[in-house]
Simulated assay, not measured.
Amino acid sequence: MRRIIYWSVGVAALGGAALAAVIAWPVGSAPAPIELEGNVDRGAYLARASGCIACHSNFEAGGAPLAGGAPLETGFGTFYPSNLTPDPEHGIGDWTAESFAKAVRQGISPDGEPYFPAFPYPFFAEFSDQDIADLWAAFQTVATVSEPAPEHDVSFPFDQRWGLKLWRAAFFYEPNTQPVPDRSDAWNRGRELVRGAAHCGACHTPRNLAGGRDLGAVFAGNAELPGGSKAPSIRAEDLEENGWTVSSLAYALQSGLTPSGDAFGGSMAEVVRESTRFLSLQDREAMAIYLFDAEVGGADDIVKEEGESAERKTRID
């Protein structure tokens, strides 16, 4: 009996030490100084392409742009996108360009805490310093709203931020948006948008029980989106089977109308209304060109964070 007691105490001590180590485990890395001059127009365009306005604005409830978004109801709880206006207390007014870069590209707050993956930061991991400078310049022009977004309503154990460190270790994949030699400029631009800023895979790829993307089913659709919405497959064979063409898909991203004359509903209607309709025809066509000729499911489709070279990590951070 005494041995059992000693063994139990030892196991508990080891478990406690392991938990303490995870809690103390630092995540992320300090970004290099952002010294480039940002362009407000380019930043506003990238913010639209990235869905910042759509997610962080609760227009249906009369909210101001970027003052905090509508609730995202998930199986883990309800998440409320944060206030991104320049308010120093409730928004990002006391941030630096470097802390903004760390939040956008790494999903780490200025105080070092990981963000919940309801924020699709993995798709933004390859934004360049110029992209960050442009976004930062654009966000400085937003009207200040001195009200906090509601607190997340997430129950235990999903409310434990330290657990997100384990989630990141398992499921933080960078988007691999770099140009592919011998492919057209339009194809590579579409790849950059679809895999990166527009983060199409965030909704159109199924998730596992832990909320990580199923890399064996990239773009294959997701029947369990927040709020009960669904996202169909956007793989080339499924698009073609459902009557889509490059031109009709590019047009739908601007109009919200499908080849059958129906209109997008649910979350995709919001994506068109607040994001893709603001993109240029060239960018919408590029996204369609890529989706009709995208390689998915292979080892090169998405790159694991830990597998990146030191040279590339330096460039990203």
Rank of each mutant, 00 (worst) to 15 (best):
T258C: 13
A12G: 04
M287I: 10
N58E: 01
G221R: 02
F264P: 07
A197G: 08
G212R: 00
V180I: 03
F100G: 06
A231C: 10
Y121N: 04
F116P: 11
K102A: 15
S128A: 08
R42W: 12
A13N: 01
A143V: 10
R213I: 13
T144M: 15
Q160Y: 11
A32T: 14
F76R: 02
G227V: 06
F76C: 13
G91H: 08
P110A: 14
P150K: 04
S280L: 07
R235M: 02
E240V: 08
A17Q: 12
A186T: 00
W25V: 00
D185P: 04
R312N: 02
Q160W: 09
R315C: 01
E60G: 03
I92H: 09
D238P: 06
F119K: 08
A263N: 04
P33L: 13
L46D: 09
D111V: 01
N208W: 02
A143P: 07
A17S: 14
Y173M: 04
A220K: 06
F139C: 12
L84Y: 14
Y115A: 09
G43F: 12
G221Y: 10
P81A: 05
D134Q: 10
A18K: 14
A18H: 12
A198I: 00
N39V: 11
P259T: 03
Y121W: 08
V9I: 11
A186D: 03
P33T: 01
E241A: 15
L279S: 12
C200Y: 13
R168Q: 04
F171T: 06
S50L: 07
M268F: 04
T96K: 15
L72E: 09
A197N: 08
A21M: 04
I4R: 13
E73Y: 01
S8A: 15
R284V: 12
V272P: 11
I108K: 04
K304I: 14
S260H: 14
T141M: 11
D293T: 05
R213Q: 13
H90V: 07
K313S: 08
Y290Q: 12
A133N: 05
I5R: 15
L279F: 10
M1A: 00
L19G: 14
N188V: 02
E308N: 00
D111F: 09
G75A: 15
A231H: 07
L257N: 15
L291F: 06
W7I: 08
A299N: 14
Y6I: 15
V154L: 01
Q282C: 06
V154T: 11
Q130D: 00
L46V: 15
E305T: 07
T177L: 08
A170Q: 10
F79W: 04
G68I: 08
E174Y: 03
F123Q: 08
G190K: 02
A223K: 12
D134G: 11
P65C: 05
A310E: 13
P157M: 06
E305C: 04
W162F: 10
A44G: 07
E147P: 05
Q140G: 07
G112C: 03
A236F: 09
A13W: 03
W25G: 09
G77S: 05
T314I: 11
R48G: 04
R105W: 08
I92R: 03
E241G: 05
Y45A: 06
Y251P: 13
F100E: 09
D182C: 02
A13T: 02
S8G: 05
Q254A: 15
P33R: 14
F171E: 11
S229N: 13
Q254R: 15
P179M: 01
K304F: 05
P206M: 03
V218Y: 07
A137V: 01
G266D: 11
G298F: 00
P226E: 14
